[in-house]
Amino acid sequence: MDALRARSLSKVYDGRRGRVAALDHVDLDIRTGQLFGFLGRNGAGKTTFIKIASGLLIPTSGSVELFGVDVRTRVREVRERIAIVPQEGKPFYHLTPREHVEEYLLVRGASSETARDTTDRIVRAMGLTPYASTPAMFLSGGLQQRTLVAMVLASGAEFLFLDEPTLGMDPFARRQVWDVIRHAVRAGSTVLITTHYLDEAEQLTDELAVIEGGHVLYKGSAEALKSKVRREVRLHFDGGFSTQELTPFGEVYAERGGLTVMTTRSRVEELTRAALERRIAVTVGPVTLEEAFLTLVGRSIEEDEAEGGAT
């Protein structure tokens, strides 16, 4: 069964700058037990989607069901089965990481014993042991974020909404969070996570959606996204070429004082030969998810601009 099913979901905000369509007829399915990633530029509509799906924001039109329960009309039933890390949420000033996790579990209805044991496990798994008894106001930003994420992941809720949970965390901490998330999924949770770290999305998620301007541009695996943009190879030149020369081969980015071009396997030889003739160093490697993302979203922006220009 689908854990989440959104149909023609739209949200129009009436803001100071006029009406903003944050979501535009979005259809999306997330299967039970999936670890689903949400990618998109700032303002793409990720948080809006999560707020609607978790019952915190009323959509303009369309519907979302969680485990077959309509979020709009039966929000109480939905809430019993979810937990959420809001984007830029923060813990209480005066409570310690241990207290956060344990009290949150008790408030959610866990027995004292379960709450204590789960708290022990999560505090350890999230690397919070040395800080377990320090009030959050004395903790660094990343540690506060870890505290918030720890309490929500400890819930083991059936559906976990994680809006940029690893924001501001160091690479070690991020990996600890990934492990705890994977553990939750093995235990039966379904996860919807947003992130701007593309390596995180690639390593963690089973499937992902790329959202841009309130539309779902892509849904599938990270691997399939890379092949979809039909760019398998990235070549980096330490100068010696102009953007115009490289554009026919694929998308070009200025990078590290030179140019990087995303292209297909068949054009590699031609390009490396040209570089060698000009006696220029060239590095060849596989396209990363980040580059596939940049290409996909970049093309969509170009199309929009072209349309905008025509009308």
Binding site: S54, L56, R76, P86, E88, G89, K90, G109, F161
Partner: peptide, 15 residues
């Protein structure tokens, strides 16, 4: 608004 903790707490079996 500032901590978003109300959202964290009500998105749960807590009424």
């Amino acid at each position: 608004l500032e901590r978003q903790l109300q959202q964290v707490f009500i998105s749960s079996p807590l009424r």
